[in-house]
Design a protein around this nucleic acid. Structure first.
Lengths: 304, 304
DNA sequence: ACGCCTCATGAAAGTAAGTTTCATCCGTGG
DNA sequence: CCACGGATGAAACTTACTTTCATGAGGCGT
């Protein structure tokens, strides 16, 4: 046979629909009916079985197959998945996600979710973009070589500090976190050369954290600041400054996006440190995971 | 038959892949093999015939069909076109960013940062996509009407629980968090009808948290579970189930991305609750912000 | 330990979908 | 009028998909 032309199966990848409507006039009447259905609603066509589509086009399955070949497909299933893919691609991104702004008063949950997720994701991405690998490297270096690591933070940043402490601890580094300023100051006073003190403050103006970091520095420890504002007071007492890039919404609750950004930075440092000695880190992680195993139910796969 | 529960075919519209990876641990071994293939390369899977896929997963066609049903599809063809659509929608990961995977041994800091940020951002976005606004609404409703709210969580999820508690507290809701199981149990025993208990566990298998939630439920409180796995044990003791969508890797068992996903959900709930009474919430926030004002330096402009 | 039960699983039977073949139809040009 | 060629659908055929069922492994209570 070898008659069906099979128009350029090669490079119409960018627009099957366009391609089809382009060669619509060159198709036989019955095939055109099929083509029109397909072009009109690709997603719907993808859902139909070949018999279904044939019936809808008032023709036979054979014609549908011929149509497939005419537009360069191997067969109906291939057309189907291509159509599905095409249809999915042309869905435009969600409407009005408020960027960096406040949540509008009348917003419903779906809007709130979309807005928050969008801003959270952006904060993470933008933070990563502006993060200086060189500075990270220095910080990782310092942590790896440190005898002891203190992590300070208050309020919402306290959670992040605590999280970082726990992470470092899990891979066998001696790390501390203090929820209380006095204790933190006491600890800072005992730091020395080669130790590391990390202060986390979104605004960079939390006096408690600054004070403690200052103390640590005066004792010879390397100091690191993690803040959203590169020229805030905390940066003045830090040897290394890492910044987040969260544009907080007006609902400045507890600094929502900034927490995530901070955590992302923490993750990077953590992995950086862990990567310095993969074997040891992995072993430590496995050991700690095993330790809590007895507090888990359904060891195997879970189900109802 | 009527055995495979067919988890929420309703609201996984936003992310089939995500949905599948969430269900992964609850699947049988053979189905898991299929699932892994599908998740690893949806586009490729969409191209395969059922026999082909079965062979690749070293199992029978029957298992593939079972897998389809398990993830809420009618049959294989439907899965196929959904996969094709999904694959088309997703932008492929830029260059060498390992998606959901491990950081390669030789990676430098810049690579580590890019990879982590990418995965973190994805976890946030995908979580938002699959989050059911209706369930969120119910939870918000419950919190708004609650006399008291207990938030439980252990390990990494403990930070999230604590964060949520603090947020709720800041807008004037009576919320508690307990780092210790015994105290938590004691508290749960004192809950009653109209109160809310929220349990956070990434794996959904943390027995401590489950136990406490169960206790709370038996006392008549509304129970909420926040987990990555929609069919994990914790969901059995929860009236409302909220899921995150972090594909955590084995190595990074510090549950990095999942924390961010959890926090995003927490943020959504928080804003949802706050939106119920904007005036009051705003006033409360301002009051609390003012309270820590004396602990800030350089009240004026910070930043550049 | 034993038997019971449940569940996972693939073989095979059964059904539906997709593909090919082929006879028919229709219009066209000799 | 007949030969011809393309379009078309019926039906045969093939492949893909789905269901049923027997088997066997693993857990659970006795």
């Amino acid at each position: 046979m070898a008659k069906s032309p099979k128009i350029s199966a090669s490079h119409e990848s960018g627009g099957l629909i366009v391609h089809i409507s382009g060669l619509l006039p060159s198709l036989s009447p019955a095939e055109q009916r099929v083509a029109r259905l397909v072009v009109a609603d690709p997603a719907d066509a993808a859902r139909r079985t070949i018999t279904d589509l044939a019936t809808a086009a008032e023709t036979s399955e054979a014609t549908v197959i011929r149509f497939c070949r005419s537009v360069g497909m191997d067969g109906y299933p291939q057309l189907r998945i291509r159509l599905a893919a095409e249809a999915a691609r042309r869905v435009e991104p969600p409407d009005a996600r408020v960027v960096g702004g406040d949540i509008p008063p009348g917003a419903d949950l779906a809007q709130i979710i979309a807005t928050i997720a969008f801003n959270d994701a952006r904060a993470v991405e933008e933070t990563a973009e502006q993060l200086d690998p060189a500075v990270c490297e220095q910080v990782v270096e310092a942590i790896v070589g440190a005898g002891r690591i203190d992590v300070y933070g208050a309020g919402a940043s306290g959670f992040v500090a605590s999280d970082f402490q726990q992470k470092l601890h899990r891979i066998g580094r001696t790390a501390f976190y203090f929820p209380d300023v006095h204790t933190a100051l006491t600890s800072a006073a005992l730091l020395g050369r080669g130790d590391v003190a990390i202060g986390i403050s979104h605004t960079g103006t939390t006096s408690d954290v600054i004070e403690v970091l200052e103390q640590a520095r005066s004792r010879g420890a390397s100091t690191v600041a993690l803040t959203n504002f590169p020229r805030s007071p905390i940066t003045e007492v830090a040897d290394h400054v890492l910044t987040t890039a969260a544009r907080e919404t007006t609902y400045r609750s507890g600094a929502m996006a900034s927490r995530l950004a901070q955590l992302t930075v923490v993750d990077c440092l953590f992995v950086g440190v862990a990567a310095r000695n993969r074997a040891r880190a992995r072993k430590a992680l496995e050991a700690t995971a095993e330790a809590v195993q007895s507090h888990r139910v359904g060891s195997g796969r879970r189900r109802g």
